[in-house]
Design a binder for these strands. Structure first.
Lengths: 223, 223
DNA sequence: GCAAAAGTGTTTGAGGTACACCCATGC
DNA sequence: GCATGGGTGTACCTCAAACACTTTTGC
């Protein structure tokens, strides 16, 4: 009991919801807890904030420690702090969202977690704490904010077919998209280009492979 | 030193940015600090979260204690937690936004603050802590999320002219709006109605007064 | 009568939505 | 030759933006 204060202090944690798209479905990284409370249940990775550590840096560190992932683009979702959300003590958590392309997602279970793996968002197991509620808000946020360009830039592998991209967008939004309209919009957006390669994977016409354009001309193109 | 922990805990505060529109300009409630740190500087109202108190409830309570305001509609902006943002100790703050109509804004300075008053957002004094940065994010959030209907429902007094409403929208967005387009959109939105009264305030044609429609028919109108 | 704000419609372009058929391939 | 997914264009509608003059009042 080395740290004392004049009035009670809550603990502060950070949690990270890491999303990806796999097989045309939105998925999230969960770890299996092996300690009380909620031992055996699945949870989004996270942990306590160091006393001299920024929130974002804590999120990055905890995610790395528990899953081996080094996430770029951490975006804050918000703080969750109902008084009874953790039986150990008052814990306020600050939640971050990260988007990772499936091909860069290599999970390693860390020390605090006995296992780390992907779950489809539409087929989640029972979750620890209020993580179910948190993931609900996180998915809502993705649906509000993640547009076609965001999906292309942040969720697609180095090369992909337009059908892959469309399915990823459908996975995020949860709604079907018309193929011709989707491709027309993509042309207008001007964010993808052909690689020249094709993908053959069955008894049908091969699909053109695309990559995301690196937009050097952004400064020129704006306005 | 009655409260001790095995590892260091940050303090957690809540702060509330209360916005209103006055004279066609966006304004925010600030209190003058009379204690170290930043004594004499202005700050957004806020304070420490009770150990058994939800974040939103703490925000509501602190706002009431420091300004006398009882805010409805508190919406979370996010958590701010850079390690050096408070010289006393590590403090993580969760910021809420509230919108109040000018006619219901009656400020009383509370015990922690020697003074509470409105400042125009485009003419702020020097602020304590990182509150300048926080207000920047809060205004950005308003501009992103607050549409014409939101302004009408949350920032306008019981009765107002269409010019008043347009000026409020301009104050929030920071951009000029065409009068005819604005009124056409309002008609389509169907959120205001004439009171039948007029406002005479100078050597010109009197303005019709409007009120926000209470939409009983929402359940019926949807889909 | 004049200064000052209130009030009022039309045209245009962009972007979203609905919708059906041929193409290239593996088996 | 047939099953399978890949690829393409048009018509319509909605919404946002640009734009100027008449009306009513107080003095």
């Amino acid at each position: 009991m080395a740290y004392a204060y004049d009035y009670p202090h809550p603990a502060v944690t950070v949690d990270v919801a890491v999303f990806t798209v796999s097989g045309g479905r939105l998925a999230v990284v969960l770890i299996r807890r092996n300690e009380w409370p909620h031992a055996g249940k699945w949870a989004i990775p996270g942990g306590f904030v160091g006393i001299d550590e920024s929130l974002k840096r804590a999120a990055w560190r905890e995610l790395r420690e528990e899953t081996g992932l080094k996430a770029g683009n951490l975006e804050q979702l918000g703080a969750f702090g109902r008084p009874d959300r953790d039986p150990r003590e008052r814990v306020i958590t600050v939640v971050y969202i990260s988007l990772v392309t499936f091909d860069r997602l290599h999970l390693e279970a860390g020390s605090d977690a006995s296992d780390a793996r992907l779950f489809f968002v539409d087929d989640l197991p029972e979750l620890a704490f209020d993580h179910s509620r948190i993931l609900g808000h996180a998915v809502e946020r993705l649906q509000e904010r993640l547009d076609t360009e965001g999906v292309a830039r942040r969720l697609m592998p180095a090369s992909f077919t337009l059908t892959d991209l469309q399915q990823a967008c459908e996975a995020v939004s949860g709604a079907a998209i018309d193929k011709r309209n989707f491709r027309k919009k993509l042309k207008a957006l001007d964010v993808v280009e052909r690689t020249g390669e094709v993908k053959r994977d069955g008894p049908h016409r091969p699909a053109q492979l695309y990559r995301v354009k690196t937009n050097w001309n952004d400064g020129r193109a704006r306005r």
